[in-house]
Computed example of a mutant assay.
Amino acid sequence: MTIVGPRRTTQNDSDRVLNYAAIGATRSDEVVAFPPHGYRPFEATQRLGSGDARFEAAAQLLMSWGIHRISGIAVSDLQLENPKRAYAEVAYDQDGKPLAPRLPVDAAGMGADGVPQVIAGMTATVEYGWGPFRTPAPVKVVYVIDEPDRKGFACGTRHGHPASGEELFLLTRDETGSVHLTVRSVMRASDAKHMLPMTLMRVGERQYTKRILSALHPTRAAAFAA
């Protein structure tokens, strides 16, 4: 696994542009039943245990790219946008009234192991695959969920990604204290030349999903930390 912290880059604005229009589609549960035209929806949930300690430990891992790192998915080229042009997420109160935008933190937002925390507007390259078959995929964090009982983030695909769409990784704690991880996505091939890579990714989707959903389970997380 490779992670590179924020550093200077030769990326231009076009490299950071998302390659799909339905930004934020994964926020809604209904997107699974009513996906954007031409997109394939997916959702799966795994129970991780219960209790505040379990939730907090899983959230800390999730928000420092742990779900990818533990799954063996390489994450590199983490970049923070220019703060003056940063992707600012709008927060809402319980009545749906918009509050002040949530401005992303600076490069000091690091996890305990020195890995940058997930921030709205951050760009990265993730690398999917099995064995010698690897597919680099540029993504951008389009929104972050930071609530007392809900933590997570969604990655949108950028130009150069074999897919077009969005994937949400959401950790929740219910009224009984049970902790669950949900993965929700809407995806399609970004263009004709990426039909084969997308087909290969879908062939391995079951194994990929199993790895992702179990990544924050206490047994795997403890082994990773060790």
Rank of each mutant, 00 (worst) to 15 (best):
R27A: 14
R27P: 01
E30W: 12
V31G: 07
V32S: 08
A33Q: 12
F34R: 13
P35F: 12
P35K: 12
P35H: 12
P35D: 12
P36I: 05
P36R: 09
Y39E: 12
R40H: 10
P41D: 08
P41E: 07
F42T: 00
E43I: 11
A44C: 03
Q46R: 15
R47M: 11
S50Q: 15
S50G: 13
A53S: 15
A53K: 15
R54P: 04
F55M: 10
A58Q: 05
A58V: 09
L62A: 05
M63P: 01
G66S: 04
I67Q: 02
I67R: 00
H68G: 01
R69K: 10
R69I: 08
R69C: 02
I70N: 02
S71L: 00
G72I: 03
G72A: 03
I73D: 00
S76W: 01
L78H: 06
L80F: 15
L80N: 03
E81C: 05
E81T: 09
P83Y: 11
P83V: 11
R85G: 04
Y87I: 06
A88T: 13
Y92T: 06
D93M: 10
D93T: 09
D93P: 08
D93K: 08
Q94L: 13
Q94G: 06
K97V: 13
P98D: 09
L99Y: 07
L99I: 08
L99R: 14
L99C: 10
A100L: 14
A100H: 10
P101D: 11
P101Y: 12
P104C: 13
P104G: 12
V105L: 14
A107C: 03
A107K: 04
A108R: 14
A108H: 11
M110V: 15
M110G: 01
M110T: 12
G111S: 15
G114K: 03
V115R: 03
V115H: 00
A120D: 02
A120N: 02
T125F: 00
Y128V: 02
F133S: 09
R134V: 06
T135E: 12
P136R: 04
P136E: 06
A137M: 05
V139S: 01
K140A: 15
V141S: 01
V141L: 02
Y143D: 14
Y143N: 11
E147F: 07
E147M: 12
D149E: 13
R150F: 09
R150T: 13
A154C: 06
